[in-house]
Amino acid sequence: MTDVILETRGLTKHYGGVHALTEANFTLRRGEHVAIMGDNGAGKSTFVRQITGVEMPTRGQILFDGVEHSFTSPIEAREAGIETVFQTLALADDLDVPSNLFLGREKIRFNLGPFSILDKRAMREATLAALQKTGVKIPNLMNTIRNMSGGQRQCVAIARTAAFRSKLVIMDEPTAALGVQETAQVENIIRTLKQAGEPLILVSHNMRQVFDLVDRIVVFRRGRIVADLRKQDTDGQDVVAYITGAKTGADFQGAA
C-alpha cells in the first residue's frame, strides 16, 4: 500500500485543436487536501473531468490507489472510490434528500432488474448517518431539492460523497454561488473530512478559503501545471503571480 492515493502521468486532453490540458503530472497523498487554482480556462475543470471519468483523456495515465485506471464513465470512477461534487450540482430537483444521495445506486430490498423494490428505510437511515458525519443541517429529509436554499443543495451534494466509502473527494468550486453563512457551513464540512483523514481535491478561486483549508496548492495556467506549492511556503500574492503568469515554478520551467 503506497502513500499516494492519486497520481496522473502526462495527462493530456485535446478538444479538436484546443489543447485544454497538457502533460499534467499530479500526485495526491492519503489524507492530504490539495487546492487546484488557476484562471478561467486554465484547465482546472478539464483536469477534474479526466480523473472523474466524465471525459476520456487524449493521452496519459491515471493511477488511483496504486492501480492504473481508464474510467469511461463517472460511475466507474465512483465505483473505484472517487466521489465528485460537480460545479453543476447534479441533483434531481423533484426528488427528496435520500433519493438524491442514492441516485443511480439505490439500495434495494430484492432484485427484479429495473423493477427492483427500493429499500427506502435503509436509504433514509444511511442519509441521516451521512448528514451527521458531515455535520450538514437539513431540516426535513423528505423535502424536495427544489424547496431548498443554494447552501442546502450544496450540502446535499457534498453529503452524497460522504454517504459512500469514498477514497477521494473532489469538489469543483463548491462555494462559488453561496452566501457567507452557507460558505462557512461547506468549509466546516471540508474540515470534518480533513479530520476524518479523507483526501480532497478542491477547485476554488477563493484565496482565503484555499489558505484556510488545504495543505498544498497546485496552479494551472493555459492547460499546464505551473506550480506546486506547500501552503506554508507561499502566500496569496505569490499564488496570484503564478496564476497570472508573472512567475513559473522552478520545476516547471519547460512548461510555460
Binding site: I75, L89, L95, G104, R105, L112, L118
Partner: peptide
C-alpha cells in the same frame, strides 16, 4: 412501480434533471 421501484425513481430523476441522472450513472 412508480413509488416503490428503481424504475419509478429513475423516471422522476430523468424528468427532473436528465444530465444529473446520467452523471449519477443511471
Amino acid at each position: 412501480i412508480m413509488t416503490q421501484t428503481k424504475y419509478g425513481r429513475h423516471c422522476y430523476a430523468i424528468g427532473s434533471n436528465e444530465a444529473a441522472a446520467r452523471m449519477s450513472g443511471i
